[in-house]
Design a protein around this nucleic acid. Structure first.
Lengths: 191, 191, 191, 191
DNA sequence: CTATAATCGAGACGGTACGTCATGTCTTCTT
DNA sequence: AAGAAGACATGACGTACCGTCTCGATTATAG
């Protein structure tokens, strides 16, 4: 038993870059394994060897280009454990022309691709969700939030942002994120 | 000189039924014009003659089977102009195994199909949205809601429901809808 | 039940012509369904719709271009029922640069393609064989040949021609065919 | 300056055995360098290092398993210098289920592989041919055969055998070989 | 008794072609 | 006309092998 040739990182990078660029220039629907292979100067097999589907490839390409932005900023000792900042950053990402459409398309593709859905959850959704829940906990312990199921709180805050991205023509701005959090904090009932 | 034959309603119905059933049994991604034609016992041309794309066909099939459920119930003189009931009905629809997935798939497909997006907006989204805004107005005039941009209010209420349908594994239940409206009304700030 | 669109003869001809030309210019091994489709300006499916394999396609292309030459000339009342002429024509065909190689390649491909073997037999081999056996019969009845199993006689006459085509570098010339028939008639035993 | 490691005979044998067996079980067309490597438990490179093509590999595998049978038996002082025996042995080989098909496939492959054709000629065809010509010479000198071009004589005797192997469904039996030689000796002309 | 260099297994890689599927357009014939 | 049937050019799918390449591990002399 001897060691085989290892995965070539240049190939990997060329593929991810090509996927990302194509997704950008022509949109997710126009991304094609053949197109990615051609643009990356790579055989199709080299894609299928490492990624089982277009969806997971684009997801990886997305994450490869985004890592720093996805990192949740420190909870610090900001008011509300930094929840307002987090919400604004999310809105900025969703409305960023480079990433918003791609995220929307990935979420869309995940609707009929369980493997993609699973990966999206584990690699993108869950990490962010956990950071969010942690912040909510801190804010609750600090007495800044009512003692409600943090999962519900997270939904109330982030649901409207995704709603605008996916169902309306206009993705959410940071300003919109502010109005969401302020209104949610205060409630809808008249004083 | 004879009159041209008009559109055959049986053909139309067979196509819509086939599309709906296929979408159900195998999922939106597996719906195919050829498959619909075969199942409906119809020539492909008879589909292309009347629908420009798979997305719009499925949307029509969906609406054909759903019309009564989509009709917004009367605002009546329920508390909050019936907003809680509306939210529950929506949650019930989104979590209905027959319609939830299909709606999610349609919204997903609309992400990269402008024509479908347009139609979905005009035929599904806007009518419901207008009913919602109307209710919010009434509730505000009745002094049951603060005087905030009704669009924002609508987002805050419905965003979480779609968020659960599209981004989480579990679609929203009517019970969940209740918690959303109650919490939103009261706000997150501790008493 | 209505009538579908019929097979388009122009498509058929373009495919056969492309196959024949490619087989010529680059040899049978280099003939490719994709190549034929490209050269014929045709979709691959249009080839697969009508031919199950490359071998049968090339065989058809061959026959399409050859029909007149394959037609056995009349037995007439030539000596030996025209067997010498038939043998010469065969040799001429096998050594014709346009058809010899192609025939050799088809026979070769038939070695591991039962469907091709079957078709080759029915469409090429058998018709010629039957003509040959008929001539042998006539010659026997005319007292010009001994009364031996005509199948064996046919093998003795044609075997050497194919032997030269398939196993030696040099295909048989009509002159060679003459020597074969003369020697076979006279036998190898010294006088 | 040190001596390189020599070729490993176990590897060589494993490859030839795998090639031979695969060619048997699935037929020449299904033999694949990758398949041979897998079956032999060998890297592909170890095949490409020593054989330039599938054809030459299979030819080697064939010869490796056959050598004794291919050796022409001694001309002895049998009648006709043992030509009848040689013809029967050849027929037996061509109709042997283990070797006939393989030989046919090799001859077939040689039609569009000059390197294979060359090797087949030098290693298989020519040695046998020379033995045959030698026998014919002896028989002629012994006055048992007419004084005709020995090459033609060889063609007349062996052509029919290969004809049956390559163009008809049934390979030649030793009994058939007998009829060939007897009839050829006597000639086709009536007495 | 090392040092070195070819052999070997494994398998990644850029390619080419495979045979299949669905697209949207077209043509044909039937009602 | 509208409709069922399906041929057609197109283009992507995912797979199979090709022949080349790189990667350690493994010998087997030549120094």
């Amino acid at each position: 038993m001897t060691a085989p040739q290892r995965r070539n990182p240049q190939t990997r990078d060329a593929i991810l870059a090509a996927a990302f660029e194509l997704c950008h220039e022509r949109g997710y629907a126009a991304v094609t394994i053949e197109g990615v292979a051609a643009r990356a100067g790579v055989g199709k097999q080299s894609i299928y060897r490492w990624w089982p589907s277009k969806g997971l490839l684009v997801l990886d390409a997305f994450r490869d280009h985004l890592d720093p932005r996805l990192a949740t900023p420190p909870a610090a000792d900001l008011p509300l454990a930094g929840l307002p900042e987090l919400l604004q950053r999310t809105a900025a990402l969703l409305s960023d022309p480079r990433y918003g459409r791609m995220l929307a398309d990935l979420v869309a593709a995940a609707q009929h691709d369980p493997a993609l859905a699973k990966d999206f959850h584990e690699k993108v959704y869950r990490p962010n969700r956990e950071g969010t829940l942690d912040r909510i906990h801190r804010a609750q312990r600090a007495g800044e939030l009512r003692d409600i199921d943090p999962d519900l709180v997270a939904d109330l805050l982030f649901g409207p942002l995704w709603f605008r991205l996916l169902l309306m023509q206009s993705p959410p701005t940071p300003e919109y994120a502010n109005r969401v959090i302020e209104t949610t904090l205060a409630g809808l009932r008249p004083a």
